[in-house]
């Protein structure tokens, strides 16, 4: 399958990546090679096969609804690239 520049740009936007022209052409050729390899899976008939998301049969893991201490705010904000007045700081998003 041909991976066009349009597809690369579409997927990069979905993945929130800005790619250089060089990266785009390298990724197109890498992905084309990898996708044509994984197309091998089509040799297998899976029409009546259930997909396995998780190998161990665990569903609906519940715990008691109990209030527990949360992390101190300053400890969480310590890793933030930018913070102000106890909040994460981001560029203005509302005009």
């Amino acid at each position: 399958m041909k991976i066009s520049k349009d597809i690369i740009e579409h997927v990069a936007n979905l993945a929130r990546l800005n790619l250089t022209e060089e990266e785009k052409s390298a990724l197109a050729s890498d992905m084309e090679q990898i996708i044509s390899y994984v197309d091998k899976l089509n040799e297998l008939d899976t029409s009546n096969v259930e997909p396995t998301n998780h190998v161990i049969p665990i569903t609906n893991v519940f715990r008691e609804d109990k209030a527990e201490a949360s992390y101190p705010r300053e400890k969480i904000l310590a890793n933030a690239p930018s913070s102000q007045d106890g909040c994460f700081k981001v560029p203005k998003i509302v005009e």
Partner: peptide
Amino acid sequence: TRSEGFGTEVKRRIMLGTY
């Protein structure tokens, strides 16, 4: 941030997975 923060292989896998 993501373009500068991730290396080539990580971007390749993110692109493949997103696709």
